[in-house]
């Protein structure tokens, strides 16, 4: 099959267009800017809209407007910009508007640096905005998945009328790999709730305000039921060589690629370790972790953070087995050798 060598960031936009996205609103930031570049290049050519917003705050609200109108719309940024977008994300979730947001993580806190990190896990997975809401979070680990999971994100967003975030680190965004693009789709999702400036949609209202406590609680409960359904249906993961594994390593994004190499090296030496890679960070693949808990001696969570996802692993493991952690930050990437040492120490 013929493939295209392409940066993950650009694959996002080609995937988005193939999935029927016709509006991009964003503000430049390293290491996510290639997404905006590709959107500016291609969207106007396919009858879509590209606007460089005045800020991330504005860009996410432009997405709010386009999503209200029923269009598949998206934005992208990196940590500092995602912080700014949290206002809009809360409104999007509260108003049950579908959209896709890409976060190409860099180092923090504050201005930090532009190197890859995974320090946005909490603000993205736990919902960095105000109120009781959830966003689905997909974590690609290749250029191919940057395309595929962006496409999936649009489908999930429409299915559940909820924002979906694609969370990748700077390496996954910047890396070039061969990508096999699927065929373009004719997307016709029925959105009877949208406000399009037509007779059919005139009675519609997009809002997140429910003044009476009774009504707001009812709304929040309705959202909670939706989130419960998402948790039941949408847990995704990749289990690599977990059969008979005594220790299962857990990591997402670029870290999962490194762990892949570690697992291969260990198996070659007869050490039984495996890799669980969450593809959905929310809903977190709890069921699979519970299942693995019965089999393993311990888990090793590796992140490019001081330990964020590890909290969710611990919640799933419920102290039944030890959960070890290894993390690097600031753009320092855990090496195969470093993790290898950690694995050997656990195995004993």
């Amino acid at each position: 099959m013929a493939r295209e060598l392409i940066k993950g960031n650009e694959a996002v936009i080609k995937g988005a267009i193939l999935a029927g996205c016709r509006a991009y609103f964003g503000y430049p930031i390293t290491p996510a800017s290639e997404i905006a570049h590709a959107a500016a290049q291609y969207l106007p050519l396919v009858g879509g809209t590209f606007i460089q917003g005045e800020s991330e705050v504005a860009s996410i609200q432009m997405v709010y407007g386009a999503a209200s109108a029923g269009l598949r719309a998206m934005t992208a940024s990196s940590g500092p910009g995602i912080s700014l977008k949290q206002e809009g994300i809360s409104y999007l979730a509260g108003s049950e508007l579908p959209c896709v947001i890409i976060d190409i993580m860099r180092g923090g806190p504050g201005l930090g640096n532009i190197a890859p990190e995974q320090g946005d896990y909490h603000q993205v997975v736990k919902g960095g905005g105000h109120g009781n809401y959830k966003t689905m979070v997909l974590a690609p680990n290749s250029a191919q998945e940057m395309c595929d999971l962006t496409m999936l994100a649009f489908d999930l967003a429409d299915k559940y009328r909820n924002p979906v975030i694609v969370l990748a680190d700077g390496f996954i965004g910047q890396m070039m790999e061969p990508v096999e693009f699927p065929q373009a789709r004719t997307v016709e999702v029925d959105k009877p709730w949208a406000v399009k400036g037509t007779r059919e949609t005139r009675k519609n209202l997009i809002t997140s305000i429910y003044l009476s406590p009774e009504e707001l609680e009812e709304h929040v409960r309705k959202l909670a039921r939706k989130y419960a359904e998402v948790e039941r249906n949408e847990q995704r993961y990749e289990a690599y060589r977990t059969d008979g594994a005594e220790v299962v390593t857990i990591g997402y994004g670029i870290v999962s690629r490194i762990l892949h190499t570690v697992v291969d090296r260990a198996r070659k030496e007869g050490i039984k370790i495996g890799l669980l890679r969450p593809i959905t960070l929310w809903p977190f693949p709890k069921k699979k972790i519970e299942e693995l808990t019965k089999q393993v001696r311990a888990f090793l969570v590796v992140e490019m953070s001081t330990g964020q996802m590890v909290d969710d692993v611990k919640l799933a493991v419920k102290e039944r087995k030890p959960v070890h952690f290894y993390g690097r930050t600031g753009g320092m990437v855990p090496s195969v050798d470093e993790i290898w040492e950690k694995v050997k120490a656990i195995i004993g």
Partner: peptide, 14 residues
């Protein structure tokens, strides 16, 4: 900003 998104999505709307 919201108006921008709405209008760009459906230029016929007011």
């Amino acid at each position: 900003a919201v108006a921008t998104g709405l209008k760009r999505a459906n230029p016929e709307s007011i």
